[in-house]
């Protein structure tokens, strides 16, 4: 866990309202794991006051990349950053996707900007593992393929891939690949993850999800990001997560 000012190396628009920010972060590189995140201060003043959590999207040489969608004041400021600007990053934070247990086929499911952590996860998958990416969007304009391969799309309006949601896409895909030994990694809006929980529980499929929450600190002191586990206790998304086995939590 380090806190440092880093320089923006690029900040590129890759889809509608979606950007890819690259920062020079040499000192962090040995420590970053897929599924972890950074808490980023986008400005030097108190408006907005808090840091913003972003998952690690990719690592390239001495640089870390963050994929983000512009939704509010913080991400709007971030989208205006140009090469050479400084931001302050705190991390790496949280746990990671467990990719050491081998499965024959890995399925990555991203709902909207929930696709963000997967480029780096894909890089860390053993070569022997087959994988596919299920990318759910509202409309074709949100589509990109940064760091992704073997992509299947679903869209709310039918402009790309199947018209429907990622769970419907998953159901079709599982029938197509006819593989028993599957592991799913997923990230996206809570309604999607809730539906996925029901689906994977019924079919008894291994699944890990990366959860999202409003948070202040990102390392366990503010207690602002609880999630209830199956024993009705609260865990913190920032510290005990953000990655959880889908069976262990209440979504």
């Amino acid at each position: 866990m380090l806190i440092k000012d880093v320089f923006v190396q690029s900040n590129q628009k890759i889809a509608e309202n979606t950007f890819l920010l690259k920062v020079n972060a040499e000192e962090y590189i040995p420590y970053v794991k897929p599924g972890q995140f950074f808490n980023i201060k986008v400005n030097n003043n108190s408006y907005p006051l808090l840091r913003r959590p972003f998952s690690i999207s990719d690592v390239e040489g001495d640089s870390i990349l963050f994929m983000y969608k512009v939704v509010g004041e913080g991400t709007r400021i971030l989208a205006n950053k140009v090469v050479g600007d400084q931001i302050n990053i705190l991390g790496p934070l949280g746990n990671q996707f467990s990719i050491n247990e081998s499965s024959n086929h890995v399925i990555l499911i991203g709902g909207g900007i929930g696709i963000a952590p997967f480029p780096y996860l894909i890089k860390q998958l053993p070569n022997s593992v087959k994988y596919s990416v299920l990318f759910g969007v509202r409309t074709e304009k949100e589509v990109h393929s940064y760091g992704l391969k073997n992509i299947l799309y679903s869209s709310d309006d039918g402009t790309v891939g199947i018209k429907g949601n990622t769970i419907e896409l998953l159901d079709i895909h599982l029938k197509q690949i006819a593989e028993k030994d599957v592991k799913i990694f997923a990230c996206g809006p809570n309604p999607m993850l809730k539906a996925l929980q029901e689906y994977t529980n019924n079919k008894n499929i291994e699944c890990e999800v990366s959860m999202e929450s409003a948070m202040a600190c990102g390392f366990g002191i503010c207690q602002g990001c609880p999630i209830e586990n199956k024993d009705n206790n609260y865990k913190l998304i920032c510290k005990d997560g953000p990655v959880f086995n889908i069976r262990d939590i209440m979504i």
């Binding site: 408006y47 006051l49 929450s213 609880p226 609260y234």
Partner: peptide
């Protein structure tokens, strides 16, 4: 004390609201 259910915090103008509930 378990504390309050989420959402527990929200950012406001130059501030934040919290309702952790003494967890």
């Amino acid at each position: 004390r378990k504390g309050n259910p989420p959402q527990r915090i929200v950012e406001t103008s130059s501030g934040m609201l919290n309702a952790i509930g003494l967890a």
